[in-house]
Design a binder for these strands. Structure first.
Lengths: 182, 182
DNA sequence: TCAAATGCTGGCCGATCGGTCAGCTAGGGT
DNA sequence: ACCCTAGCTGACCGATCGGCCAGCATTTGA
């Protein structure tokens, strides 16, 4: 045996998450992943049933985390909901930079997959919380701006320490929503 | 001849811009466009030399407009530069919703094409203006949040009147940057 | 009137995609 | 000594991709 199984799987997932984030799911072929991971394409499909299974596995940790955030937000309203949504979204966006980038990049190709996070419903409930449960057009626009600003800026390649990024993303989002930044 | 040439070309471009925005450049095949436009795939390649030429033509109006915005911003500094950048970016994002969405969606596949807008340099110069020519980490983070918030929110499917969207995008972005909203 | 040009198409091509399969190699249990 | 299994691979498959080409139909103009 060439490598221990756990190492090979981990190497594949590591290559896949980087390449998917850089070139998109559809823009990355199995051969690309195999070359990057240093094995054959057939070896990928020995460890994973198919390409979707690789994606599903590396997105697996994300779904529960967002579900937990939603559960925390469900009981909140008004400014309290908005502030909690900002804090939670900043945290998850930074912890899952690459994964979130993958999800948004190929959102239309990844939508309607039962085992993957429900991106549409998720964004809807998040913007609802960010707007402080308001249906006013301004609040909805600002909620979208804050959400996309947080997620995509953290997915970008700003070369800043994580704590600086966290603090300024939070401050920027709160101001977008018209809330005081302490 | 089945249709006047100008109509056929216009129909193809109309189908292409909608499909590219909905499913991405790589996610849309020539057959998809042909079916949507109501002609054969071979007919596409009679009117356009190849798939890239379709993309190039429908993005053609965008480049000069952004270049003009950059020229206007070049002479400005500080808060003046930031406010002008917000106004200009909101305007262009709303006027070229679909085109901008296409550019961002497949940014890595479209980069390094000489005749297409230089997305990397463009975003760099825009964030420089949005930050008021500041190199401070906070200003750079907020500039990215404002830029991505404007562009992607206007590319989204918020069902709001254009003037409402313009006003609230401007207000939200200025607040993100820490500027007074009149 | 008739040949040239224009608009358009079906059919085909090589490349690349995701995925399958028979078979090779190296340890580990008995 | 033996076989069994896990890990891995090259070769191959059908589907789909972008693109090409010979040829058909209609219009044009001399």
């Amino acid at each position: 045996m060439a490598r221990s199984a756990t190492t090979m799987r981990a190497d594949i997932l590591d290559s896949a998450v980087r390449l998917f984030a850089a070139h998109g799911f559809r823009g990355t072929s199995l051969q690309d992943i195999a070359t990057d991971a240093g094995c054959s394409k057939a070896s990928l499909l020995y460890h994973f049933t198919n390409k979707d299974a690789i994606l599903t596995e590396l997105l697996a940790p994300v779904g529960p985390e967002f579900a937990a955030l939603e559960a925390r937000l469900a009981g909140l309203d008004g400014e309290e909901a908005a502030r909690a949504a900002v804090a939670g979204l900043v945290d998850l966006s930074l912890r899952f930079r690459l994964q979130v980038k993958i999800l948004l990049q190929d959102v239309d190709a990844l939508i309607n997959r039962p085992e993957l996070p429900d991106v549409d419903g998720l964004t809807e409930r998040l913007t609802d919380a960010l707007s402080g449960r308001s249906a006013a057009p301004q609040a909805r626009v600002w909620a979208w701006m804050a959400m996309l600003g947080i997620i995509l800026t953290s997915a970008g390649e700003l070369a800043l320490p994580e704590e600086t990024l966290r603090a300024e993303l939070t401050r920027g989002a709160l101001r977008t929503l018209g809330l005081q930044t302490d």
